[in-house]
Design a protein around this nucleic acid. Structure first.
Lengths: 238, 238
DNA sequence: ACCTGAACACCGTTCAAGT
DNA sequence: ACCTGAACACCGTTCAAGT
């Protein structure tokens, strides 16, 4: 019985080929038949490894999210810097795979690497002294900003050409807004400005929190010197 | 020649039927054949009014963007309040049509109503004294945050069920994160927290700007008392 | 000018059949 | 256990033909 000769396919090889295909030719190129062809295999073979195409896409997305650097959350970096470094790493990972961003931005973040990511952010913020409910919200809003920026910046396709529409009706919008070259610069600037504004706004809240904490003694606010002991318990307070 | 009997179809009727179909049955239900059926017409008929399905989707999206309230930008409301009211109105419009958000978030914002929207925000900020380049970035980052939030909140589909994945590997994430009921509350909280943080962060920058302006005389910073005269000229400085 | 039926080149997915 | 070919029920879009 020479049965255990190695299978032609496995999830890892399929995901890798799918990501390469999407990166090189866009999301529309990823059909089951085309992907199977890239793997020198017949279309339905893929269904031995993934139940549906959506499940395959989920795996591709999770692989990309796995590229996001999370090390800044465990090296004792102060939370604002950690959040900034992480947001930029997140954006860079999405910029490297622009065509998958629409799938990623939409999909519920319950794949393994998405959960690792959410967990790392949450842990860092709670460690720093943020209440658990706030930490949850901050993690979410940061992801929303990064993915929203990435969608508009990378996935939007190239504006076909200037002069596509009449400028007459938009008194404040100038020619520059329609130039593709400038669009990338605006997007990068918008991301950086938004990121810094967000961090400043959060820092302001953190100061108020610390002051309230010091005045009110131990309310529901966990001080920033709390040890690990309290936070690995399970509930998130959100 | 009884030619001018009114046509069965027109763009307006098609767009309205498409939006209704998407709202009621989701984006996947919007096929050309299905939509044509709703309009009691044959599939290819639609191509007499839209060159492609994408062009039709663009029109649907622009209709939704047209629902966003922009009146706060022309009533002399201070820019932070105007921006806050607008962001909430924007979010509400997307919440009313959750299934179209993925298309909207991705599509380049060069349809008429998207341009009207961008123009209104830009005009308000420049009027308030923001430099044109900054005004452009702020408009963009606000859109990114609103659409990013909306995508994750409304378009993400319902998390199938709790217990889909093992909790063991995510020490900080508790059961609450997996409950659909709590997800909506977290999303709303994340949006509001992010919006306020963003506005605070921008207000901080505006203060610094004003101070620099008063110190440095008239640099490239247009004072907040500038009249309309200067800004309808066309170029945006971005 | 606008609508139709037929057709083209695709899809995702199922399933019996092979090994 | 894993791969195949054939098939099913769809797609978006084109096009000659009708009025």
């Amino acid at each position: 019985m020479p049965r255990p000769r190695t299978p032609l396919l496995n999830r890892e090889r399929i995901v890798a080929a799918a990501l390469r295909l999407v990166d090189e030719e866009g999301l529309a190129a990823l059909s089951t038949r085309r992907l199977a062809g890239e793997l020198s295999v017949s279309g339905p073979s893929l269904y031995n490894h993934f139940a549906t195409k959506d499940e395959l896409l989920d795996a591709v997305v999770d692989g990309v999210i796995g590229e996001v650097d999370l090390s800044m959350f465990t090296t004792g970096t102060p939370w604002p810097e950690a959040l900034r470094d992480w947001a930029r790493s997140y954006r860079a990972a999405l910029a490297a795979h622009p065509h998958i961003v629409p799938v990623l931005a939409q999909g519920p973040g319950r794949r393994p690497n998405a959960l690792r990511l959410a967990d790392a952010v949450f842990g860092c913020l709670v460690e720093a002294g943020w209440p658990r409910g706030q930490a949850t919200r901050i993690g979410a809003l940061m992801r929303y900003f990064v993915t929203g920026s990435a969608l508009a910046s990378f996935a939007a396709g190239f504006p076909e050409d200037a002069g596509l529409y009449d400028a007459a009706d938009y008194p404040h919008l100038g020619e520059a807004h329609r130039l593709a070259e400038h669009r990338a610069a605006v997007d990068e600037g918008a991301f950086e400005t938004g990121l810094e504004a967000l961090l400043d706004g959060l820092a302001l809240r953190f100061e108020r929190l610390e002051q309230a904490g010091h005045r009110g003694g131990q309310g529901d606010h966990q001080g920033s010197r709390t040890t690990n002991a309290g936070r690995a318990a399970g509930s998130t307070g959100s």
